[in-house]
């Protein structure tokens, strides 16, 4: 969405214009669902988080900082909500996911299923990370946000972000090696 149009919609929404806010929701809903589902996996949980996030956005529009991109702000709210909700949802989903992965891996399925399996494995491994590592990994590697944007979303220094990303990738790599029997690497 064009920046000017977005600012205009935000300004009108802040004045109580629900039609403008609807346009804002429609423009950013796909991103919101995609991001939330990287954390919580279950679409219903993701939808609940997205709904809560947009309500928070609506309540706090008059405090919106125009130096931020709307997506960055929305991403920040969603990430915080996901991390807050994470523990209870994670426990519930981990069991279901373990079963799902084993079941599908045994089927030796087609490419599409393999891709879906890979997706599930990566998200499953991401859920085993610490909240900060998970957030950095999801935003940087799965949502492909720029490093400085990740820092803004998570209120993190560049060094801290890199450190969390490094440990996250180490964990993901180890997990993928386990699932795909990738030969462990001696490191210098």
């Amino acid at each position: 969405m064009d920046k000017e149009i977005e600012f205009n919609l935000i300004e009108r929404s802040a004045k109580g214009n629900t039609a403008a806010f609807r346009a804002l929701v429609e423009a950013n809903q796909a991103f919101a669902i995609s991001l939330a589902s990287r954390f919580v996996r279950d679409v219903t949980d993701a939808e609940d988080i997205v709904q809560e996030a947009f309500i928070r956005v609506w309540k706090n529009l008059n405090r919106y900082d125009f130096n931020f991109r709307f997506k960055t702000w929305l991403g920040k709210i969603i990430t915080n909500l996901c991390l807050d909700a994470g523990k209870s949802i994670k426990q519930r989903q981990t069991q279901a996911l373990d079963h799902s992965i084993t079941h599908q891996a045994n089927e030796n399925a087609t490419n599409e299923l393999e891709h879906e399996e890979l997706r599930k494995i990566i998200l499953h491994l991401a859920q085993q990370l610490t909240p900060k590592q998970q957030a950095v990994f999801v935003l940087r590697d799965l949502e492909q946000l720029e490093p400085d944007e990740v820092c803004k979303v998570l209120d993190m220094s560049n060094g801290n972000m890199k450190s969390n990303l490094y440990y996250a990738r180490v964990h993901i790599k180890a997990g993928l090696e386990k699932y795909y029997q990738i030969k462990p690497q001696n490191q210098t």
């Binding site: 796909a30 669902i33 995609s34 997706r119 949502e143 492909q144």
Partner: peptide
């Protein structure tokens, strides 16, 4: 990981979700 990131989850009922919001 990039392959996985390219596949975005789409809300099955996007319009319904918008209405709910």
């Amino acid at each position: 990981v990039t392959e996985v990131s390219a596949k975005k989850t789409i809300a099955p009922n996007a319009a319904q979700l918008t209405s709910r919001i």
